[in-house]
Amino acid sequence: MSGAVVVLAVNLIVAGLLSASFAMVAVYDRKQFAARWMAVAYGLGVIYFCTEFLIAKLGAPRPVVVFSFSLCLAAMLMFNVGIARKYQVPVPWRLLSAVFLVSVVACDAIQDMPRTSFARMMVYQAPYFATEVIGAWIVWSARSRRWLDTLMMFLLAASSLQFLSKPFLSDMLGGTGATAQHYLATSYALISQSLGTVFAIANALLFLVILARDVIADVTVLSETDSLSGLLNRGGFERYANAVLRQEARKGPLALVICDLDHFKAINDTFGHASGDKVIKTFARFLRAAAADHHVAGRIGGEEFAIILPGTNLTAARLFAEGARSAFSALPVDGLPEGLRFTASFGVSELAPGDDLSELLSRADKALYEAKRDGRDCVRTTSLPADGRRAFRSS
């Protein structure tokens, strides 16, 4: 058994395993449409490698050779569809269809040319080159890329070059054999199949890593999101807030606002828990609308919310809280009596040198307690005066 036959057998097994792997990802996360296309692509690869075995062992008429070429090209084009789905780039269906149709016609036309012809080899490999270039272009067109995505783009570009190099390799290594049956015994077949294996596995594994990264990110977001309000839950808020504190502590002021819905138990007792949930959702929607992109907002308790305001001092944070208090008190809640309005109390603190999140939360919480004690529907702030004693201020 020649080395090329062994490599072809490895390709067949690997294509099957990769098709199954992508299928499992698609079953686990039904939003991963890209994984479905990848499973189809490598499934076609399995059929392609089977036909290559048959052609090499038994020979094949012209239509079978063209069919085998069509399977391989279709698999690569499906890979590109998967890439487009992953990166939310419009699938270039017309371009992919044109490449497929023109390439199949060209493959049929070159069957009458000598197998040792350089022009024949170039026409045969050019569609594969073009397909990989299209894949790299799709990744480049993505709205956002991280370093793994950029690596994917360069890997596809490198793969395209290896297809373009094959006519030169064939010329250097004595060609592809006098007949299809002789192909797997040539040095060119061993190198060509090995190159294809390396790039096919590298592309697939990198794409699996990228999909796994996204799945993990989605799971993390779900685990850190409060299902009722859509804001960060306590754990998510603390993780993001700590990250902001590490970044902003050296840059400038930072403030924290804690807010608590007033008389929330009475809302539940009077109108029911479903109505209480509507009030929470309304306040959360309002908070998201009021917050800037760089703010971090979360629901940290039953009816308690918090928002980190980077680049904001105590005075500006107090103004933000007062504006939020006034606006929310005038906001209707769908499904509840039209004239009914709800209020919230607010506590505000500013980051002091040496503070961590727990100290910042503690001071804001004490200010919130003062707001509740002073009649609710108001804002209180706490700061550290020069003598180190905490002082409360009304607003």
Rank of each mutant, 00 (worst) to 15 (best):
L8T: 14
L17R: 03
L18I: 15
S19Y: 10
A20G: 15
S21P: 08
A23I: 02
M24T: 09
V25Q: 12
R36F: 08
G59H: 04
V64L: 04
V65R: 09
S70G: 05
L73T: 03
A74S: 15
A74H: 05
V91M: 12
R94E: 10
S97D: 08
D108C: 10
Q111F: 10
D112Y: 12
M113H: 02
A119D: 00
A130Y: 11
W137Q: 11
S144A: 01
S144Y: 02
L155H: 04
L169S: 07
M172Y: 13
G174F: 05
G175L: 06
T176Y: 12
G196T: 09
I201Y: 02
I201N: 00
A202G: 11
A212T: 15
T220S: 11
S229V: 12
L231C: 08
V257C: 10
V257N: 09
C259W: 00
D262A: 06
I267K: 06
R288L: 07
A290D: 07
D293R: 10
H294E: 12
G298V: 01
I300W: 03
I308F: 08
R318Q: 11
E322R: 09
S326N: 04
S326V: 13
T343G: 14
S345N: 14
F346T: 11
V348D: 02
V348G: 06
L357Y: 00
L357Q: 00
S358K: 06
D365G: 03
L368M: 14
R373H: 12
V379H: 02
P385A: 10
D387S: 07
A391M: 09
